[in-house]
Nucleic acid binder design. Structure first.
Ligand SMILES: NC(=O)c1ccc[n+]([C@@H]2O[C@H](COP(=O)([O-])OP(=O)(O)OC[C@H]3O[C@@H](n4cnc5c(N)ncnc54)[C@H](O)[C@@H]3O)[C@@H](O)[C@H]2O)c1
Ligand SMILES: NC(=O)c1ccc[n+]([C@@H]2O[C@H](COP(=O)([O-])OP(=O)(O)OC[C@H]3O[C@@H](n4cnc5c(N)ncnc54)[C@H](O)[C@@H]3O)[C@@H](O)[C@H]2O)c1
Lengths: 219, 219
DNA sequence: AACCGCATGTGAATCTATTCACAAATGCTA
DNA sequence: TAGCATTTGTGAATAGATTCACATGCGGTT
């Protein structure tokens, strides 16, 4: 990685759109497109061509004027930017409703997120086999995370215990956390925390349906 | 509702923060707070006091200078704004990994989102009882949605069929859709579509961990 | 009933993100 | 190799969101 050293802050929205581009490029690749214009790319995710070009321009110039972007190559580049092809070791904590669903989801694997460990505190679950993975005892959390070189932790425990769990996760040196519990978790500045908040999306719909007039667009 | 008629566009971020305020107020209410300042409210969700006040000011003035906001009253007001206390009839389509998890989640109910119907196309699932709800046949989708006065539909089917399902959902007159499939679904302008995209969050973490320097904050 | 401290509500200022618009490049054709 | 049709890459302009900063008003106190 060429140390750019300059802190050209990339906005969150840009990163999120990069995910979208990546998804579209995967599809285009399957459809045997060689190249794609910012116009087509934009259309597929309901964005503007200028937005697409601007986003990509933060990271380099990947296109050819008059032609567009080479699909496979750009896909590779975005994977590189997002850090998708290095492969991540993921642990999941809380094998309940949502935790089980996540373990059974093969798409994550395909994107380089490998669920290596799953934890619970329920004696009936510990030791049992969940879609090929043995449930570990939460009491071994810190050592297990370290020994298995886990980099990302997914938290799917009840909201009431989420903060305690996260404190331990942070102690184990984890810097990336995806949280499903509906609480605002406190983590140090150097830990990245993302929240998956389904209630929020439902509430947004509720608002939109209740106030049809003064609502913007979608998603 | 006093017809404000003016299209004072409320931004998506404001609505999302309203959800956060609502959550905090619920907690404060349990903790027996009478009033809360924008400062405290902000601290609890890592925002600024000015942001809190500005957001609320779009909808009215709910506070008392020198005192703050009355917790229970403000909570009620936000519920009203978000349309949470009218109760929503929800249908879920696709009783697989993620669909099952959602059906078993009592918190939605508590927030006024009542899952009334669940659909699948798998003969082994149709007719079976899932946490108290009988799985309906997807072939009756349109009529069932209408008869049961469903207002919001949650889509949890494989990405490959999601667009077909959504087309039918739209035909049935549904105006609010929460989609879990990883595709950009096309819906008419008057239908609100929200996407729950877990891969995107993981990819954001991947980016953040790969580019520690030039990343903003969290969630 | 005058005063004080505190916290709201909100225009104005600032900061950030998106869109515009066009020069610069490229591929293709003749 | 000249000309044309495209489409990129990017400063500049615009739009939008957040923060600032302070006048205003309320509750409590003396
Ligand atoms: N199920 C959903 O659809 C859904 C939707 C949105 C958010 N959530 C959130 O996801 C979280 C999990 O929800 P769920 O429905 O899967 O709940 P759940 O009760 O089914 O699962 C929670 C799991 O965590 C385990 N657990 C409890 N305490 C633990 C501890 N200290 N250490 C390790 N494991 C522990 C439990 O044994 C259980 O297996 C909750 O915070 C919930 O708010 C769930
Ligand atoms: N499981 C996860 O953790 C997860 C995470 C992110 C996104 N998703 C997305 O959610 C969706 C569902 O994932 P899943 O893991 O639950 O898959 P799944 O295969 O377990 O469940 C899909 C369900 O949909 C049903 N179905 C298929 N075709 C149907 C049709 N035409 N009509 C009605 N029902 C139909 C199937 O019978 C099945 O019950 C997928 O689009 C997936 O990409 C899942």
């Amino acid at each position: 990685m060429i140390s750019e050293s300059k802190k050209k802050k990339i906005s969150e929205s840009t990163i999120r759109r990069l995910s979208l581009y990546y998804r579209v490029l995967s599809i285009l690749e399957k459809e045997n497109y060689e190249t794609v214009s910012s116009k087509e790319l934009a259309k597929r995710e309901k964005l503007t061509p200028a937005q697409v070009r601007k986003d990509l321009s933060f990271f380099g110039s990947f296109g050819t004027r008059g032609l567009g972007y080479p699909v496979s190559e750009l896909k590779k580049q975005i994977a590189e930017i997002l850090g998708l092809n290095r492969g991540w070791n993921v642990a999941l904590i809380g094998v309940g409703n949502i935790g089980s669903a996540l373990v059974g989801y093969k798409e994550f694997q395909r994107q380089g997120f490998n669920i290596k460990l799953i934890f619970d505190n329920d004696q009936r679950k510990i030791g049992s086999n969940h879609k090929g993975i043995i449930v570990s005892d939460i009491r071994n959390l810190e050592s297990d995370l370290k020994e298995n070189n886990i980099q990302i932790v997914v938290v799917a425990v009840p909201a009431t215990v989420a903060q305690y769990i996260v404190d331990d996760v942070v102690k184990a040196g984890i810097k990336g956390i995806l949280n499903f519990a509906s609480v605002n978790l406190k983590v140090p500045d150097d830990v990245f925390l993302r929240n998956e908040n389904m209630s929020m999306e439902l509430e947004y719909l509720s608002f939109a349906l209740s106030n049809l007039k003064d609502v913007k667009g979608e998603s």
